[in-house]
Design a protein around this nucleic acid. Structure first.
Length: 490
RNA sequence: CGGGGUGUAGCGCAGUUGGCUAGCGCGCCACGUUCGGGACGUGGAGGCCGAAGGUUCGAGUCCUUUCACCCCGACCA
């Protein structure tokens, strides 16, 4: 299936777009580069939010909320941060509209010009650190472990549903610590939270590791990330966790009295994942029949479809299914009984497959007689006729099996598409087919830039190995401490 | 911002060297027959042909301008 998709790589964008729209997840809005997340798509996001939030709380974090608007001067405080974000921001310059004196409509009231422009947040480090200054006086105030669920705006030149929209939803954690070590541990802890979330909830295998200097977040000392492989062979960064050192504390003058009574700057981290995760989910698991949702993220885990002739039979089967629905719900499952009488069952089958519902149970007159149901699983498209007895146990077990199987499938795909390459010519050739490439690199930004220029491949991360094996850079032949992960990326 | 493409019904499209009443499929509404993998028949509703200007007896079609969207780059979670 994956191969089928990759064979039409030139149409992958179209495939993805169509899938998103047909599966009723999202559409383009009237506003440039923004998207409308439709109810079915948003339900998936809510499930992600709930799972992530639970994990954040488990690791000692609390939620808070900071303003949407950031005074322009804040953004210019941290030099590298300016470089990274200044070029792509939405700016509020006025606070009032007025009727056009010359005709119809509204114009911006020229008298309502703001003294200092406000930036719609592209990320919240600056406004948060400006706030933290007031919260932190002593080591006793630390650590601060805040997260916020918010929307941010980045005026990217090119947009794509879920992957790169002008406005997107995300969570951003911002923590403050007394020591560098504590902050580094936090950075590590959160990237691990993302990785286990990806694996356990999204059924998505990811690589973990630090970025190279050139790929780092603007203003970070170190950026850890998770990277996943999509079915067209391209990599997707699905989460980041940054060790910010004392950069923002210095820029916003956030100092605290330590145990020895001396003033020191606070150590910081920030970490985030966004609605891009939805894009990853779609591109990693879907097949040509539509979405394939891991049960833990499926808004509907089980759909019940009656098969009938005539009103009488329909009523009998539907009331039978109502009872089954209750039985399944009592097991904590999210169940939909599709009792529409204006479409036929075959139509319903296709529609729920398109939406990625993991398990479908169909019941017709034959089943009514035999006390059976037809159970179909979305991941493999297999069907089997089972006894109605203890069906709820079977379904619960099946959902778990599907969750695991989707992961195994994605892991297998990634393993089959991860290559160790030593020769640059071979690399150039093989990169065209996509995948992750483990190669030696001399550690210089120049080599990294050359390779990117010549092949469009970037270093996604430096994988963490217990015993890194040294070698020679495939490009320059110079010594390399270990292999790094190259890929073409979204 | 560069290169390519597309704008005609809710969606997907056709529309000849300009020609008179703008079409098809899907969907929608009504009725009937159907119903174990995207049903069928009959009837019906739905369009300033992206926008503005021009050429012409006549423009969906030709010319100019403009806007929007999509794809490929640069930018990026």
């Amino acid at each position: 299936m994956a191969k089928e998709i990759r064979n039409r790589e030139e149409n992958y964008s179209e495939w993805y777009n169509n899938l998103v729209i047909k599966a009723d997840l999202a559409e383009n809005s009237a506003v440039r580069g923004c998207m409308v997340i439709k109810p079915y798509g948003y339900a998936i996001w809510e499930k992600m939010q709930a799972e992530l939030d639970r994990r954040f709380k488990e690791t000692g974090h609390v939620n808070a909320y900071f303003p949407l608007f950031i005074p322009k001067s804040f953004l210019s405080r941290e030099a590298e941060h300016v470089e990274g974000f200044a070029k792509e921001c939405a700016v509020v310059t006025h606070h009032r509209l007025m009727a056009d004196p010359g005709g119809q409509g509204l114009i911006v009231d020229p008298d309502a010009k703001l003294e200092e422009e406000l930036i719609v947040r592209p990320t919240s480090e600056t406004i948060i650190w400006n706030t933290y200054r007031n919260w932190i006086k002593s080591y006793r105030d630390l650590p601060i472990l805040c997260n916020q669920w918010a929307n941010v705006v980045r005026w990217e030149m090119r947009t794509r549903l879920f992957l790169r929209t002008t406005e997107f939803l995300w969570q951003e954690g911002h923590t403050a610590h007394a020591t560098a070590q504590e902050a580094m541990e936090e950075t590590r802890r959160m990237v691990e939270v993302y990785a286990s979330f990806a694996k356990e909830v999204m059924s998505l295998p990811v690589w973990i590791g630090p970025k190279t200097e050139s790929e780092r977040f603007a203003g970070a000392v170190d950026t850890l990330c998770i990277e996943a492989l999509m079915q067209d062979g391209k990599a997707l960064q699905t989460g980041t966790s940054h060790f910010l050192g004392q950069n923002f504390a210095k820029a916003f003058d956030v100092q605290f009295a330590n145990r020895e009574g001396r003033l020191d700057y606070v150590w910081a981290t920030s970490w985030g994942v966004s609605t891009r995760l939805m894009g990853a989910l779609i591109m990693a698991h879907s097949d040509n029949n539509g979405l394939v949702l891991p049960p833990k993220l499926a808004p509907i885990e089980v759909v019940l479809v009656p098969i009938y002739k005539g009103e009488e039979e329909m009523e009998a089967i539907c009331s039978h299914l109502e009872a089954l629905k209750v039985r399944l719900q009592e097991r904590g499952l999210s169940v939909k009984l599709d009792n529409r009488d204006n479409v036929r069952s075959g139509y319903k089958f296709s529609e729920w497959e398109l939406k990625g519902v993991p398990v479908r149970i169909a019941v017709g007159p034959r089943d009514m007689q035999n006390g059976t149901v037809e159970v179909a699983r979305r991941d493999t498209m297999e069907k089997q006729v089972l006894s109605l007895e203890a069906i709820e146990h079977t379904v619960v077990a099946l959902l778990k099996e599907i969750q695991d199987n989707i992961y195994r499938k994605a892991l297998d795909f990634r393993n089959r598409n991860t290559f160790e390459i030593n020769n640059y010519d071979e690399f150039r050739e093989r990169i065209e087919d996509g995948g992750f490439f483990l190669c030696h690199w001399d550690g210089t930004a120049e080599t990294e830039a050359k390779i990117k220029e010549e092949t469009k491949a970037t270093i996604r991360l430096i994988p963490e190995r217990e015993d890194p094996k040294p070698g020679k850079c495939m490009y320059s032949g110079k010594p390399s401490a270990q292999r790094v992960v190259f890929a073409r990326a979204y």
